[in-house]
């Protein structure tokens, strides 16, 4: 039987492949548990809809986002075996993707800014939606509590 080690002579050394599947199944359970926690938080947002103020809602959403990043780490590092590659190669993938941190901050802030400019006609009048928010639920017809 031929060995997988004659894959290609440009490979200097081969990472050790685990003989068992324990690590794969462990990551499967981690991903499942993280997804279940995300869903539980999603249901919490649904149950508290209209009751929670801005701060607990945005905090829950940020926690769900961080759990998603944790899932992404496990998928990329273990399932895609990027964690087994050499460091220089990992860096050529990860460093460009760090640009996303700035993209997300800049674009979402810009979206928020458009909304404020529209609601205030370019800061020429007070933002009506800011004061209306307290009475809006009363307008909802047939809404479940």
């Amino acid at each position: 039987m031929s060995s997988p080690h004659d894959l290609s002579n440009e490979i200097t050394f081969h990472p050790e492949h685990a003989s068992g599947t324990g690590r794969i199944w462990r990551v499967f359970w981690i991903l499942s548990v993280l997804t279940i926690i995300e869903l539980a938080l999603g249901y919490l947002l649904y149950a508290k809809h209209g009751q929670w103020s801005y701060t607990p809602v945005i905090t829950t959403k940020i926690v769900i986002g961080l759990l998603t990043l944790a899932k992404a780490y496990y998928i990329v590092s273990v399932f895609m075996h990027l964690g087994d590659e050499i460091r220089n190669f990992i860096m050529t993938i990860i460093i460009p993707l760090i640009l996303f941190v700035w993209f997300i901050i800049a674009f979402l802030a810009d979206g928020e800014s458009w909304k404020n400019l529209k609601n205030t006609d370019g800061h020429s009048r007070p933002d009506a939606t800011k004061t209306e928010q307290h009475v809006t639920p009363a307008l909802h017809q047939g809404e479940k509590p």
């Binding site: 894959l7 290609s8 002579n9 440009e10 490979i11 200097t12 050394f13 990027l82 590659e85 050499i86 220089n88 190669f89 050529t92 993938i93 460009p96 993707l97």
Partner: peptide
């Protein structure tokens, strides 16, 4: 196929990673 890959991975695998990026 000449020397060794500076990333210790085959051409195809590296290019798959860059495509995915």
């Amino acid at each position: 196929a000449g020397g060794r890959s500076p990333f210790n991975a085959s051409y195809g695998k590296i290019m798959m990673w860059y495509f995915l990026m």
